[in-house]
Nucleic acid binder design. Structure first.
Length: 685
RNA sequence: GGGCCGGUAGCUCAGUUGGUUAGAGCAGUCGACUCAUAAUCGAUUGGUCGCAGGUUCAAGUCCUGCUCGGCCUACCA
């Protein structure tokens, strides 16, 4: 087999938060792939880095009253510890805030400038005078210009789904400082991606580098196609790649006082991290990034598809670097069929997991679930325990557990005995398993491997060596059966080695011979000593899972005192500006009764309510509570409505008010209900 | 509204270019064994392959329509 030269990256974790089990899907997926390639004897280098720049880091450092450099150093240390705890082994783990990265950013900037891709444009943006920084859309909240819902993000309203620019918000506030933002115009540099349209079209649609779903998505949303009536060729928007001060990042050399946007320098971090590795090992950087013989594989989540499949190839192309051979895109992690949730304790940080459970469990469980598609994967905690127990402990480790003790006195036979073709069969399966790993079909690989483990157990049962042991004259026969069983076991462990490096290591110790190559599964081990058996892997203790979930729950529910209420809601949504009594009295809140409630068939969020204010006074109100309430459960109940709100024409009819509710939206909406004794039509004040 | 992906046993999924009686693991039931971390082995229950049409000698697989779920994207404004 010819030795391939492969460079692998996983997405750079942002230095603003800790690693959690959702991130680990990607790092475990990537680490398995890398270990597989190395085991196969290829030259494979796995680089990653912390993504350190941007407004969020700057603000957090200020809040914590320390420098950004100090903050990112601490976060990096924690990230690296988490990765190490899960046996994720990088050849180099760098930082986007490195000298190597600064230099490479400069070089690529010069290249895209020279290629004529950089254009100047003025940008009107909100600016926080207190923090002295311009505000990205998500850092601005205000009242929706359309439906007047307060506390909406700068780019869209969660209530009415209207999209707008942050400058259109009514009463905008910076979420960083609470200050009223000013509108400022500043000069930015843009990259005119449209110039690369033909190249990107060809690169994304070639069928070689991306999953087909991804290629279709890009074609449908960004590229379009010449002559296609339904989806005509689209013009790619210019990409804003600089930020005015204050910003934590690298200053743009030919644009003093301005900084590269974090998404410009982050992917260049892949190059910078490679450079560090090269310098440390006396390797030629150009061999890895400017040589067609080198494969470049990026592993990313579907949320950052856009950057890695359009901008990034565009930048690499313009600067004359290798293009990605493949961008492997995976889906998100759900737990118990739902998004990870801090209240349910399913938002588990890497650190918390490691306090309670063995990292091998998660590596195997993810491997058994991961395919090559970008579907989300679901972590079901019962299934997690069942799979680890029955596959790893019951099937795999069990083979060694039942045979090692018998084999220990004698060691393995000098020649490999007759085994009914089992070893040869499993050796042959190596090719199919390798293909599955190569194509990121780990679920398939695990299935094939477990079949081999089952064969070994069957063999053992058929031979009944525990009976042989009782007859001293059949010692040689017993030794042969153990030799077969332990060799079949070792084969399985070789195939599992990318997923379970610890088990591979322990198995090496057990059989006095370390696993170093995939082809170790092709030749049986004979004549070696067998070390005393030690437990290789414990069963999953469900109490540990429960303890982990418990520790991951954010607000302790045990303490009823009001001081135990989390301050998170208040932090998420700071108090609005003070208003006068007169201001308050402008809003006429009334008790109303829901007399009718019906689904609005074409609306996603809306329920059509008919509210009675008493007598013949009825109002029709469209409320965005479909996900939280069934229409029938609303009929008859009292609600509080804004009775003097200007009517609004919606697609489905005229909405003549709003009803008062709390919660972030979607399913988490709670209607406020007047207590006992409230009468329909009464004003609330 | 548009795009993409998916709907196969109670659960998680596999089913290659259409080709015999649709498979695996887990769970369930019965039995065997006792070497092993209450592990293992054998047997067995269980499916109108989302629904309805069509193409074909033959459809889980191809085509059309519908339906449900997920994700993305938009609009009503």
């Amino acid at each position: 087999m010819t030795q391939r030269r492969i460079l692998v990256t996983a997405a750079l974790p942002y230095a603003n938060g800790p690693i959690h089990i959702g991130h680990l899907v990607e790092y475990i997926q990537t680490d398995i792939w890398v270990r597989f390639q190395k085991l196969r004897g290829h030259r494979c280098v796995f680089v990653c880095a912390d993504d350190t720049h941007g407004t969020a880091i700057m603000i957090r450092a200020r809040q914590e009253n320390r420098s950004e450099v100090e903050l990112i150093a601490e976060m990096q240390q924690r990230h690296e510890a988490d990765f190490a705890g899960f046996d994720i082994q990088f050849d180099n783990y760098g930082s986007t805030n490195s000298e190597e990265n600064r230099r490479l950013c400069g070089e690529i900037w010069a290249a895209v400038t020279k290629a004529g891709l950089v254009v100047d444009e003025d940008v009107e943006q909100l600016y926080d005078p207190e923090a002295q920084t311009s505000l990205a859309d998500r850092f601005v909240r205000g009242t929706c210009p359309c439906c007047k819902t307060p506390e909406q993000y700068g780019d869209h309203c969660e209530k009415c789904l209207h999209t707008y620019s942050p400058t259109e918000l009514i009463d905008p506030k910076s979420t960083l400082t609470g200050a009223v933002p000013e509108v400022r115009t500043s000069a930015h540099k843009f990259i005119e991606l449209e110039q690369l349209h033909d190249f990107l079209d060809q690169w994304t649609q070639s069928g070689e580098h991306l999953q087909t779903e991804v290629a279709n998505y890009l074609k449908g949303h960004f590229l379009g196609a010449e002559g296609d009536k339904e989806n005509p060729r689209k013009v790619l928007r210019n990409w804003d790649v600089t930020r005015p001060p204050d910003y934590f990042g690298f200053e743009v050399p030919d644009f003093p006082g301005n900084y590269w946007y974090v998404w410009f320098d982050a992917p260049i971090g892949y190059l910078a991290s490679t450079k560090q590795w090269c310098d440390r090992h006396g390797e030629d950087f150009d061999q890895w990034w400017r040589n067609d013989a080198t494969e470049v594989h990026h592993f990313i989540g579907k949320d950052i598809t856009y950057f890695h499949t359009l901008f990034w190839p565009g930048m690499l192309k313009s600067a004359g670097y290798n293009l990605p051979t493949k961008v492997h895109i995976h889906g998100f992690l759900t737990v118990g069929g739902e998004k990870m949730s801090k209240t349910k304790g399913t938002f588990v940080q890497a650190e918390t997991y490691l306090k309670h459970l063995d990292p091998s469990y998660l590596r195997y469980y993810y491997a058994s679930k991961l395919g090559a598609k970008l579907d989300d994967i679901d972590m079901n905690l019962e299934e997690f325990a069942a799979k680890v127990d029955s596959d790893l402990v019951g099937k795999v480790v069990n083979i060694a557990s039942r045979s090692a003790k018998f084999a220990q006195p004698s060691g393995l036979s000098k020649t490999y005995p007759e085994d009914e073709g089992l070893f040869a069969h499993a050796a042959g399966q190596g090719a199919d398993i390798a293909v599955a790993y190569e194509q990121c079909e780990y679920n398939k690989a695990m299935r094939l491997i477990m079949e081999l483990a089952a064969n070994a157990n069957k063999y053992w049962d058929a031979k009944q060596p525990w009976l042989l042991r009782k007859d001293p004259e059949r010692a040689a026969e017993l030794q042969d059966v153990c030799t077969v069983a332990l060799n079949l076991y070792r084969q399985v462990v070789v195939y599992l080695a990318p997923v379970l490096p610890r088990l591979a290591q322990q198995t090496g110790e057990l059989l006095s011979s370390q696993i170093t190559h995939w082809d170790d599964a092709q030749t049986p081990l004979v004549g070696v000593a067998v070390a005393p058996f030690k437990h290789l892997l414990q069963r999953v203790n469900t109490k540990d899972i429960a303890a982990m979930t418990e520790e991951s729950k954010e607000a302790p529910t045990t303490t009823p005192a009001s001081s135990a209420d989390s301050d998170q809601p208040l932090l998420d949504e700071p108090l609005a500006e003070e208003c006068s009594f007169d201001d308050f009295m402008k809003v006429d809140l009334r008790v109303a009764r829901v007399v009718n409630a019906e689904e609005v068939p074409d609306a996603r969020k809306l329920v059509k309510l008919t509210l009675s204010l008493g007598g013949d006074n009825q109002r029709t109100v469209f409320a965005g509570i479909k996900a939280a309430y069934q229409p029938e459960e609303l009929v008859g109940r009292l609600v509080v409505m804004v009775a003097n709100l200007a009517p609004r024409q919606m697609k489905f009819g005229l909405s003549e008010g709003m009803i008062i509710a709390t919660g972030p939206g979607g399913k988490d909406v709670v209607l406020l209900q007047p207590g006992e004794g409230a009468q329909v039509g009464q004003r609330v004040h």
